[in-house]
Design a protein around this nucleic acid. Structure first.
Lengths: 142, 142
DNA sequence: TATGGGACCTACAGCGGGTGTAGCTTCAAG
DNA sequence: CTTGAAGCTACACCCGCTGTAGGTCCCATA
């Protein structure tokens, strides 16, 4: 039975984050010592590792909740898991596309500026005047 | 003198967002009618357009504050403006790199899964077991 | 000039996904 | 038995907004 700090170290999570996951129902309430401290079984360690890994891949906590639910019913079709992963992939691809447009615009802005004084700075000019901007870029990555 | 709603429409900003910018000191306090409603001059319209455009390019409100300050002193060197833009560019590039790694991993996960049942799903397996993962990916885009 | 209804006002709560702090209590090694 | 690290709860805060409640103002039309 592991105390929360060990769980934290082994999964690269902050202690507060683990308590936060418990609060939002992503981690189950663990056993407690007589003094009220949390003690985790190995299953909880695995679950937390799963959560962290999915977070690193950019899955939202809601998507992770869904994946965990699915993973608890091993006889069901894995098409749903596939769908969650594909959705995540297309979100990542959308963000990539937006960021690539931003990179291009920033590049252009910077390359165009050969001024010395702020008054003649192309960068500020482009920011001031949307017309000078090539893309009508979408919002930045969330 | 424009009421807040007109400013909002012309810059594609929500009314609440403009009030929020005022609250955090990014937009100046405008004049008011006798009844207490905000009335903006054209300079404020330009300033808001600048802010929105910079936001679309992914600049943080802090960076925008810096750019606005710089743009208020036209005799200064524009090297500082350049630095802010380059910083933004490298942040965008870092996010791009991370997202590209994530995309590759998600692709691989999805491609490898030919299972029917959740029990044999490769996607969940990879998520469960970090060792199966190629990259030791950084955190997702913030 | 009265009225109606859209636009405006303030104040505050909430989103996601945590992080940080204060002020305690508990655990375990020496 | 002491001590200090680690744990506990409760709450505030980060960013960048967005939404809501409950009220007030403005101005075009009748």
């Amino acid at each position: 039975m592991l105390p929360i700090g060990v769980l934290a170290r082994r999964t690269g999570t902050k202690v507060q984050t683990i308590r936060y996951y418990e609060q939002i129902g992503l981690m189950p309430e663990p056993e407690r010592t007589e003094g009220g401290q949390r003690r985790y079984a190995n299953a909880q360690l695995d679950r937390l590792a799963f959560i962290r890994h999915a977070r690193q891949l950019g899955f939202s906590l809601e998507a992770i909740r869904e994946l965990l639910d699915l993973s608890d019913s091993p006889e069901r079709s894995c098409a749903e898991v596939d769908a969650v992963a594909r959705r995540q992939l297309s979100e990542v691809e959308a963000r990539l596309a937006r960021l690539e447009a931003l990179r291009a615009e920033l590049h252009r802005m910077i390359a165009e500026c050969h001024a010395d004084r702020v008054a003649d700075c192309r960068i500020l000019e482009v920011l001031r005047d949307h017309e000078e901007c090539l893309s009508d870029h979408a919002a930045p990555a969330p």
